[in-house]
Design a protein around this nucleic acid. Structure first.
Length: 467
RNA sequence: GGCGACAUAGCCAAGCGGUAAGGCAGAGGUCUGCAAAAUCUCCAUCCCCGGUUCAAAUCCGGGUGUCGCCUCCA
């Protein structure tokens, strides 16, 4: 399998540390608000990574942090006039809900930053004692000039960084790129006791601590959005290198950004959408399809027409399943023999080959369409069609489709039933306008036989199901 | 100022040196009482200019354009 490694800027053969076992850490949310549609892309993508390795039969440990202490949480607490912990609890709950709505499989572990506070403080203390970090005015900073490898992940060199960069002025920093490990608290802010007085951790240490706690000193894959390469992941790596002298992860995977109609999503442009907003309007699987129809490293442009098109595409898959009455036949023994089997095998192989090539989901989806086409092909015999449908569901599930196959196929029928009744009632209304009472009564009696009771009122005809 | 990504048909999109996957939309044929479904067929030489090569969308150089990161950010 090939993975693009941000560290080396090329695709590399993926070799897990332990054969058959995969350790993944992907950056989760800072719980200061509902997460947005761009975050959703990252979460969905790493969900597919998680699912694919499981599909391959590997033992996956997938850790996703929840950062529940941060400046932004404190700011949000002021705005909502509740405590920082209430803000964190509220949006952590929302995070779980929205992920579930997107069909994201829960990671193996989702640790909270505030649960590992003693570990974070110990980690910073270790950095200080080894002279990789220094205290200044109650804050603790990581000294980036103390580590020759600093900048190796993002390819940034410290000197260049200083030219023209909008680095915040800070009197206490020795180098402009030095980053805060511990922040002295201001009045009214949440505090933890530390060797440097009361304060709270900076942004990057919690991820090093949590990832190593659950996955070990060096693990297989560290992931997140492309914007996290610098400074977040660079700074995580720097701390790990300082302490252990070993890389934090062997492969660094970063997904591209999501733009809104060609522009960067931002609150000031008023094109900021939370995943919640979008989930209210569109089907989760359509959203997943939209994300996965483009390679994860490319930027993707969000607009309504594309989501609607994605919805049609997913509906296409479900129509294929309906055409073979999949729900009633899914357990039937499907005899495989002759060429259809060979073709299905090669389609599965193509799907896998696409996924093995740095998660080329767009190409993998093309295989799903081939299978869908095959399942609908009335010139094939039903066992071939059913076999194609079964493979469609099996492979589609790797991308997180077909999670609600029961309700999806059944609800449609129920929706349809009431529409059919309305349709029949409209014919009956026409008959009544013609004073064709025989037809009218006959329609009423026929519906009654199906358990549908009609009531004619001055306002029109209503109906309900008899008990 | 530094770093990086991308540019493929009306739209979305794959392609990683051997002569352009797939989806949406569109055109035509078969089937059909008419439709629909199904099925068959058609629909791009890859931003521009040079270069390397027997061969380039794919490699190299130079343009042009779009976007991103360097500051909180998936």
């Amino acid at each position: 399998m090939l993975l693009y490694n941000t560290k080396t800027r090329k695709k590399e053969e993926f070799i897990p540390i332990q054969p058959g076992k995969i350790s993944i850490y992907a950056c989760g949310p800072t719980v200061y608000n509902y997460f947005h549609i761009g975050n959703a892309r990252a979460f969905v993508f790493f969900d597919v990574v998680h699912r694919y390795f499981q599909f391959k039969g590997m033992d996956v440990t997938y850790v996703q942090n929840i950062t529940d202490i941060d400046d932004k949480i404190i700011a949000q607490a002021m705005e909502e006039e509740i405590s920082f912990s209430e803000v964190a609890a509220k949006y952590t709950r929302a995070f779980y809900q929205d992920c579930a709505a997107l069909g994201i499989k829960p990671p193996s572990v989702q640790p909270l930053a505030t649960d590992v506070m003693p570990d974070i403080i110990a980690y910073i203390a270790e950095l200080v004692s080894r002279d990789y970090a220094y205290e200044a005015n109650g804050d603790v900073y990581f000294n980036t000039s103390s580590l020759t490898s600093y900048g190796s992940l993002s390819g940034k060199k410290t000197e260049e960084q200083m030219t023209g960069a909008r680095v915040a002025e800070n009197l206490y920093k020795k180098n402009p790129t030095d980053f805060t490990l511990w922040k002295k608290s201001k009045p009214g802010e949440p505090v933890w006791q530390s060797p440097w007085g009361e304060g709270r951790p900076g942004w990057h240490t919690e991820c090093v601590v949590m990832s190593q706690k659950y996955l070990g000193e060096t693990f297989d894959i560290h992931g997140g959005g492309i914007d996290l390469v610098f400074p977040h992941h660079e700074n995580e790596l720097a701390q790990a290198m300082a302490i252990s002298g070993k890389p934090l992860a062997n492969y660094w995977m970063h997904n591209g950004f999501l733009n809104i109609e060609g522009e960067k999503m931002s609150k000031s442009l008023k094109n900021f959408f939370t995943a919640r907003d979008i989930l209210e309007q569109y089907d989760a699987e359509a959203i997943r399809f939209f994300f996965l129809s483009k390679h994860y490293r490319s930027p993707i442009d969000f607009n309504r027409e594309l989501i609607e098109e994605s919805h049609r595409a997913v509906t296409n898959f479900y129509n294929a399943l309906k055409s073979v009455d999949f729900l009633n036949n899914r357990d039937a023994t499907v005899p495989f023999d002759g060429s259809p089997k060979v073709e299905l095998q090669s389609m599965e192989a193509e799907f896998i080959a696409s996924m093995e090539d740095d998660f080329n989901t767009a190409k993998a989806i093309a295989v799903l369409f081939e299978l869908s086409k095959r399942a609908r092909n009335t010139s094939l015999d039903s066992s071939d069609r059913l076999a194609a449908a079964a493979l469609l569901v099996r492979l589609g599930s790797v991308l997180g489709f077909f999670q609600n196959i029961e309700t999806r196929l059944k609800e449609r029928v129920q929706d349809l039933s009431s529409q059919l009744v309305e349709l029949i009632l409209s014919y009956r209304r026409e008959a009544r306008e013609r004073k064709d009472w025989a037809m009218s009564d006959s329609l009423r009696d026929d519906l009654a036989k199906l358990g549908i009771e009609l009531k004619d009122t001055p306002q029109g005809c209503t109906w309900n199901l008899k008990e």
